Simulated scan of single mutants.
Amino acid sequence: MKATQNPASGVRVTPADLLRCAALYLRRHGWHQGTYYAPTTDILTPPACAAGAIGIATAGHKVEHFSQLDPSALADYLAAMATFVDYLDDFHPLFDIDEDGFVIDEHTSPYSWNDDPSRTAYQVVTALERAAERWDRLHTQEGGN
């Protein structure tokens, strides 16, 4: 499709679409830990963390914080992040526990999970892709939404 063409009306981007785009972004441009994007000034497509890649997949450009997204893009971003968190909770749980042994947060933080020192780019890309596949299995019937 050329930039001057209008996209088909009625087509809705799913969380699975955004997660696959985020995984593709990381494959093409690299993975990063510690911040949304690797600190560069001369690259429009810097290496990104999982959340940063989902932000780029949603907005089409770097997003320093999800609050910078317009309302419809924000809803898409949050749905994709929730889908990713649900996947991590079920298959890669990583919970913060306080000094008394109580769980601080009931959901796996995608930020902490991404930034775990033992994490690899392969694991992050694979988790994004599997979260997308899981969303499709749970939300589609016979290939349709």
Rank of each mutant, 00 (worst) to 15 (best):
F84Q: 12
I97S: 00
D86L: 05
I104F: 00
T126Q: 04
F91E: 15
T108L: 03
D115V: 10
E99G: 03
S112D: 14
F91Y: 14
H107M: 07
T126Y: 01
Y87G: 06
A75P: 07
A132N: 05
T83A: 10
D105L: 05
A127Y: 02
H92T: 01
Q123P: 05
D89V: 00
D100F: 06
D89I: 05
S72G: 02
S109T: 05
D115L: 09
R134V: 11
Y111A: 14
V125Y: 02
S109V: 03
Y111M: 14
I97D: 01
V125N: 11
D115Q: 11
A80Y: 11
Q123L: 08
T108M: 04
D96H: 00
T126E: 08
D86T: 05
Y77D: 01
L94E: 12
L78T: 10
E99Y: 03
A79I: 11
D105C: 08
A75Q: 14
L88T: 12
Y77G: 01
D115K: 08
D89H: 03
D115W: 00
W113Q: 12
L88Y: 06
D89G: 11
D90G: 15
G101A: 10
D89R: 10
S109P: 07
S72Y: 04
Y87P: 06
P117W: 00
P93Q: 14
